[in-house]
Amino acid sequence: MLEEPASEAQVPHVQTVVKKVRGTIHVTQNRCKGCGFCIAFCPPKVLHFSDEFNSHGYRFPQLKNQNGCTGCDLCGLYCPDFAIYGVMQKQGKKQ
């Protein structure tokens, strides 16, 4: 996204750009066997079981909301079925 450069009057004296690392997960639904490791051991506790079932009849994990996930990929490391993994996303945030 292109942003117009801020005029000099709007730029504060001390401008620091803090990059916040945020992430998301990706779930291959039909591989999940519903063991719940990713949900139990997620550090920010942002996962829960879905209301739907996959083709094998298991409930698969879902994000509760989009903001909490840090993309640490611990769910990907725990998953015995290679069904879930986390990814970090680059984001710049001005303070």
Partner: peptide
Amino acid sequence: MPHIWCPGCGIGTTVNC
């Protein structure tokens, strides 16, 4: 995939590691 290991089995986790 999906593999034959039971739901909740730890072998898949070790393969991941």
